[in-house]
Amino acid sequence: MAVRLTELGAKGLLLLAALLLAFLATSYSNLFFLLLVFCGTLGGLGLASGIANLRAVRRLELQVPAGPAGAPRPVRLRLAARRSVSDLVVTLGDAPGLTLPPVAHAAGDAPTTALLPAQPRGVHAVGVVQLASRYPFGLFEVRRWIPWPGEVVTYPEPDGPAAPTGRSLDQGTPPDPVGEVAGLRSFRTGDRVRDVHWRATARRGAPIVKELDAAPDTAPEIVIDRRVEAAQLERLLAAATAAVLAAAEGRGAHLLSQGFAAAVPAGQPPPPAVLRWLASAAILPPDAPPPVRWPQDQEPAHA
């Protein structure tokens, strides 16, 4: 935990010093003394209260979904605190660009949603989350760091005819069912994740899947050759992202590039590994091997 004076606090400290000087220079006066004590107490209690404010935080839960570059995305924030925490500014890591808008009052255990500002494409590893607060008088800023081993995945801004623009993935509408729902049963190894009946799973505490009539799998294949210029790769990735997002809402797809192969299942959000790859993909030298197509009879593992 660290404390620093804010601009207002620094000015206030200067004023207090000047007043103290005047107090010492002149003969003793009760009211002058009282007012000095008042100013000192205002600062001291403000500091103590500010520290106690952040100390009340016991745990911080953050859900940062993968989001497209150039668009803000909602971040779920759940604070386990002994009491309400005021004027909270959360920064992921130490980059100011990853600062969430301030939360005026966060009640203990109540989840809130904040918009993370638009980020460039990439995977930003975050080791700690910084909490900062100027509560209660704005004279001091108290900061506290909480370990949060996570990353902010920003995939390319989708650019293509089928791109669902400006929408975060976790807001996707439920897909149309493929095939007929035949019944419910316990999860067995090998069952598809998209067939999990989440509501029943949540109630029972054990995975329950829907039994569906088999649907034909005619997923297209997206192949990205990364032996290109950087700008061209960006365009390719943007187009690939649009295609992946469309495929996820449609019939699914297979994404293939040098050293990477994953399936995009239909009817559910694209797998995190696919989005992470789209966020982190870099160009390759021209002498790199071409993307390898997988054999027709071998299905890639679901990511």
């Binding site: 019944g183 419910l184 029943a200 949540a202 109630r203 029972r204 505490g205 329950i208």
Partner: peptide, 14 residues
């Protein structure tokens, strides 16, 4: 029987 089992799973979640 299956319906009854599914119902029981739901009762568990209450």
């Amino acid at each position: 029987c299956d319906q009854l089992l599914a119902l029981r799973a739901e009762v568990e979640a209450v």
